[in-house]
Design a protein around this nucleic acid. Structure first.
Lengths: 270, 270
DNA sequence: CGCATAATTGACGGTTTTCAAGCACTGTGG
DNA sequence: CCACAGTGCTTGAAAACCGTCAATTATGCG
């Protein structure tokens, strides 16, 4: 009996059994899954010592998993809820560097360092799994496989960051926000979560901070998209009515519009 | 006799012996150094099969090391000269995602992928070292140590990207360009290369593309800095006259740090 | 209910982009 | 040696875009 069929039954997974009825990502949709796989987690007799991979108590809105400059010890996977990671810059408000949704990892960029370079804060009531890196060797699993998984994780992270840079610097406010909304939708869809209608758990300021825009601009663009019928918007609740409008806005470059034919689009921003 | 004393003599290093009199980075200043270290390269009797780490023929301006979507096989270290990496995006001009100077690495972000996500092109006559990843196991060295080095490299790259994003999106054109110039200077200084006066081997368009500015804006800001006396500027040659002026403009947000060199060489994973 | 926080909306000004023209450097061939 | 074209760089003027400031409304929480 393999791990996937076990974890599909959910209550069999030692780590991921959901304590209450909150919507959370399934193990096989989680970014930590390849590593759990190596560890044979969810196998009753995996023989992995307890405390290497563990389920943490739910966090309340505003609580932190870790703070900037604390000692690195674990990477985390979001099971439910959402988080933001931010870096404090001297003499200026914090810079939001990322948002994290169920199935996504937090803290991988600290992997090569002594300390976490940013603070991870819950945007709502959320739960996480924790993988204690220094204790991995105790698992008795081949280190090479574990390291290979981690290299894979990091490589993806680098790719994403590069694409984030390219998408941000050359796009207008409208394009950035369309890309942001579409990206959130795609990330939720990838984890098999509702992706046509969802709540923006972060504030307009957080979005603006992340995208390099003023909060007012975020607000203006969102209401403009609402009035144009591309999305429906009620406070923090977003429903994507016409994805093609958003996609067209993201792809359409104000410069060089006449040149080149719009190709097949695979939007992977943020 | 350890590797460092050997490579200090330069002609003893199997990989890095400089064929002609071109200014290039020393091995111990190179981002690949921790890995070469593990491989005991430069040791005459290291026993590592040939062809894993090798010195490539110099590239002419405009030549590519690899192109986007080619199969991944190696990461590269710049020995002399400079490179730009760029990604082509559907229906838009290429996006410059990075510049690479002696001692810095190219291609690490492809580590977890089948193919290179960007194209690496020489900005001038340049030379490189190549590390063939698929052949690493042949070295007989513990894979864990090699993987740990690679994890270290990738972790840094993620950090850099985060810092790049935060420094780009919230800064004015003047701040971005000051940061860019200072960053170049710091990266050169770090590799013990001339850092007060150097040439911008990339075009104004490349700089603008990278920083998310129009080429005209880059030109305007540079001449403004020149007229204010902070720098001297002759076409592509830059001399930093008063670093404090630049630093004050950038304020406290240091632009992306240099690529590829570990601050402390002790890799503390696993 | 009332306060504090967040979101919206409007007006204005500064920065940056765009468009356009002119200039400087490079390399080629006569 | 010079004329020439090609490319990249500089400079100018107008307009678009977005940030700031400020006022107003909405929302959440005690």
């Amino acid at each position: 009996m393999n791990r996937r069929s076990l974890s599909a039954q959910r209550e069999q997974c030692k780590v991921c059994s959901s304590p209450e009825g909150i919507v959370e990502v399934a193990c096989e949709q989680c970014g930590l899954d390849p590593i759990c796989d190596v560890l044979d987690y969810a196998e009753e007799e995996s023989g992995v010592p307890a405390g290497i991979l563990l389920r943490r108590q739910p966090l309340q809105r505003g609580e932190t998993i870790f703070r900037q400059q604390e000692n690195f010890h674990s990477i985390f996977a979001v099971k439910s809820g959402s988080f933001k990671t931010s870096m404090s810059r001297s003499s200026q408000p914090d810079q939001v560097v990322g948002f994290h949704f169920p199935g996504e990892l937090i803290g991988v960029e600290a992997m090569s360092r002594q300390t976490y370079p940013c603070t991870a804060r819950a945007l709502e009531r959320s739960s996480i799994c924790e993988l204690r890196i220094p204790r991995l060797p105790e698992s008795g699993r081949p280190l090479e496989a574990l390291q290979a998984s981690i290299i894979d994780l990091l490589g993806r992270e680098v790719m994403l960051s590069h694409e984030l840079v390219s998408s941000l610097v050359h796009q207008s406010a409208e394009q950035r926000i369309c890309g942001f909304v579409l990206n959130l939708s795609q990330r939720l869809a990838r984890r098999k979560l509702p992706s046509a209608e969802f709540t923006l758990t972060m504030s307009r300021s957080d979005i603006g901070n992340y995208l390099g825009l003023a909060a007012e601009t975020v607000s203006r663009v969102l209401t403009r998209l609402h009035k144009s019928g591309a999305i429906r918007l009620q406070r923090k609740l977003v429903r994507i009515v016409d994805p093609s409008v958003l996609e067209r806005l993201v792809e359409a470059s104000p410069l060089h519009l006449s040149r080149g034919i719009p190709e097949n689009k695979s939007i992977r921003f943020f």
